[in-house]
Design a protein around this nucleic acid. Sequence first.
DNA 1: CGGAATCCTGGTGGATACTG
DNA 2: CAGTATCCACCAGGATTCCG
Lengths: 110, 110
Amino acid sequence: MLSRIGDKWSVLVVMQLADGPRRFNELKRAIGGISQRMLTLTLRGLERDGMITRTVFETVPPRVDYSLTELGQSLRSPVEALGMWAFEHLPAIEKARQAFDIRHGPDKST
Amino acid sequence: MLSRIGDKWSVLVVMQLADGPRRFNELKRAIGGISQRMLTLTLRGLERDGMITRTVFETVPPRVDYSLTELGQSLRSPVEALGMWAFEHLPAIEKARQAFDIRHGPDKST
DNA sequence: CGGAATCCTGGTGGATACTG
DNA sequence: CAGTATCCACCAGGATTCCG
């Protein structure tokens, strides 16, 4: 279960849907860097877990809207809390990384 | 960055260290199911990110303690919030999954 | 437009053996 | 005890192609 939360694509999709429904290619463009295969799989997974709903419009150019369910909406706050944390502590983390890399890179003996 | 948060091992390690310092094999046993390779890699990663500290005791049987830093501590609440969410909504998710699997498994035509 | 199917590769992570 | 090193299997995921 946490695996899906840890999945960056799922998180990004949920974030995109926060503003309202989106179409397939809208999501694809908005997210950027995701292959349509992964987007499909991600959307399927989220739909299966009841996080989003898939609405098909049987129009001439097919149209499919994805939107968050109540469940999906409820996921936003904890995820955003995590995002906030990451954003706030990014500097500290990068600093720690640099210090670590210096300690372990150049010379361990001294 | 979110990749590390999404990493289940990292999360489990942080949770284990919440109660206080732990030794390598203590963590290994407590977590269970993690290979010592992954534990090492996970600990290295967390140490590099400044989430944990590694303390070596140069005793006859070597001893290494791992403990959360302030940064690591600060990560607990958002992670636990996420855990809470998952726990609370697990039933709804499983229900959604079953419904989905029924819709998409047996027969789509009818 | 939205998606399914196929192919293929790189990285993740387990198992094992060795070391200080 | 606390790692490190190596080998290897698996599969997540990108690119491409075809379809309704």
